[in-house]
Design a protein around this nucleic acid. Structure first.
Lengths: 149, 149
DNA sequence: CCATTTTTCCCCACTTTTAACCACCTTCCA
DNA sequence: TGGAAGGTGGTTAAAAGTGGGGAAAAATGG
């Protein structure tokens, strides 16, 4: 249930993107020096998705095999997917350089929120995150009730 | 029926959260040094839930497979779940640092109540716990009667 | 192909926060 | 009644987060 590269990002952190578009990855989320990441904007440009290359591969593989997607759609999807994704390596201080264009797309500047999500994490604009979180809360509470959390 | 990491927390303890948001885990509940825990607020922000990463995984797995939850709701649920949960490790004295924001959410400060509950335990605000306990007592007694306890 | 400008990235430095460690007091039990 | 264990408080050293300078690399233009 826990492969070696299977990361687990949990919690929420507020950090700053500096003048050089660098953002510190929470220390608890780091595994070692010069960690590699794939960065891509979420489909609706609501936030940035960050994950390891392995997680990216897993995600791609699952898209590859989904029976609900036609071969044609799949081809188009992968073309866009790989053009949107960017590769980045953390520096010795554990910071990631976020590509300027991706930041613009999802409205990232100054203080942002890093949100853990299993094998990946998200980077959100502060206000947008607040709104989305509030919108999702009723659903969360509903499911929590159902499963008896 | 008892896997190695399957814990059983029983009883109720009154402890103090200090200036640094540390709380001592009851000695009887400790298993070893540097024990790991996942901390998350209960859905209605009534108290904090504390459990081992294994217990957290089990709980996640049960949500994963529940047939009463739609795929969409499930996705939202997991997003929120992982953003709310925080990872923490006990120090050599058996104390846990509780994240400030989580304490605020459920109104924890100074003296609190630790309540055992199967594989996890709860941390309550004193008054709130008292009220909730009184409200739940009739139900408890009713069921106890039914099952002949 | 070389010179110049721009960008990237590596490293150092500072401040704040975290966590490791030590010390004390109280309680429980032999 | 003394020793050990449990709970709490505080000090100090380490780590985390942030900012910035300068070398290396890349892009640009003649």
């Amino acid at each position: 249930m826990h492969t070696p590269d299977q990361r687990f990002y949990a919690g929420e952190f507020r950090h700053f993107i500096d003048e050089k578009n660098r953002i510190t990855i929470p220390a608890r989320w780091r595994r070692g020096d010069a960690e590699e990441f794939i960065i891509l904007p979420e489909a609706a440009h609501q936030f940035l998705l960050v994950m390891s290359p392995e997680e990216f591969s897993r995600m791609s593989a699952s898209a590859e095999s989904d029976p609900n997607v036609s071969a044609r759609d799949r081809r188009i999807f992968f073309r866009q997917l790989h053009s949107r994704a960017q590769h980045s390596v953390a520096d010795k201080q554990g910071r990631l350089v976020l590509p300027e264009d991706l930041c613009k797309k999802v409205g990232l500047k100054g203080e942002v929120v890093l949100v853990g999500g299993r094998g990946r994490f998200e980077i959100w604009n502060l206000q947008r995150r607040k709104r989305a979180h509030e919108e999702e809360t009723p659903t969360y509470q509903h499911v929590a009730n159902v499963i008896g959390l």
